[in-house]
Amino acid sequence: MSPTVHEIRNAIRAATGRFEREFEASFTKEELQAICEALKITVDGAGRPSTTRMRQQIRAQVGIAESLETADDSTFRKAELQAIADGIEASSDQ
């Protein structure tokens, strides 16, 4: 059986040194920044970048979007989460 969205998110959290969550929850700003670091994405700007910008950078880095300019900024869907997990070599096997 394929992993759930929650299981994939938690695998990504664990692979980036973040705590797994018991309940279903989207990534926080800090978790997105940890994903960017794991993917070796240089986060631009002073301070913390916006969640929108980080989602776009992640999508472009793992090949979900052709470029940063064409990348969607919405929350990640299951197939996108799987691509991110593959990109950081996170395993959602139970």
Rank of each mutant, 00 (worst) to 15 (best):
M1R: 12
M1S: 13
M1G: 15
M1T: 07
M1C: 05
M1N: 05
S2G: 04
P3G: 03
P3V: 15
P3T: 01
P3C: 09
T4I: 01
T4Y: 00
V5P: 02
H6V: 06
E7M: 12
I8V: 11
I8N: 01
I8H: 00
I8T: 04
R9N: 06
R9I: 05
N10H: 08
N10Y: 06
N10C: 03
N10P: 03
R13K: 06
R13F: 01
R13C: 07
A14E: 03
G17T: 13
F19I: 11
F19G: 06
E20Y: 05
E20N: 02
R21M: 14
R21H: 15
R21I: 07
F23V: 11
E24I: 01
E24H: 05
A25E: 10
A25C: 07
S26G: 08
S26H: 10
F27A: 09
F27Q: 02
T28M: 02
T28I: 09
T28Q: 00
K29A: 04
K29S: 14
K29E: 07
E30I: 11
L32Y: 04
Q33C: 01
Q33M: 07
Q33F: 00
Q33P: 00
A34P: 00
A34S: 13
A34D: 08
I35K: 03
C36F: 10
C36L: 07
C36A: 14
C36M: 06
E37F: 03
L39P: 02
T42Q: 03
V43G: 00
D44P: 05
A46M: 07
R48E: 09
R48Q: 08
R48A: 15
R48G: 09
R48S: 10
P49V: 06
S50A: 12
S50V: 09
T52S: 14
T52I: 09
T52F: 01
R53Q: 12
R53M: 12
M54Y: 05
M54W: 00
R55Y: 01
R55S: 04
Q56N: 12
Q56K: 15
Q57D: 13
Q57M: 12
I58V: 15
A60P: 10
A60R: 09
V62A: 14
V62L: 14
V62E: 12
G63K: 00
G63A: 11
G63E: 10
A65W: 04
E66A: 15
E66V: 07
S67T: 15
S67F: 03
S67R: 08
S67H: 02
S67K: 04
L68N: 12
L68G: 09
E69S: 14
T70F: 08
T70D: 15
A71M: 03
A71I: 01
D72I: 07
D72W: 08
D72G: 11
D72V: 06
D73L: 03
S74D: 15
S74C: 05
S74I: 00
T75C: 00
T75D: 14
T75Y: 14
F76H: 08
F76C: 07
R77C: 02
K78Q: 05
A79S: 14
E80Q: 08
L81I: 02
L81F: 01
L81S: 08
Q82Y: 11
Q82K: 14
A83P: 06
I84N: 08
D86N: 13
G87Q: 03
G87K: 02
I88H: 04
I88Y: 03
I88M: 05
E89P: 01
A90N: 08
D93G: 15
D93K: 13
Q94R: 11
Q94T: 09
Q94H: 10
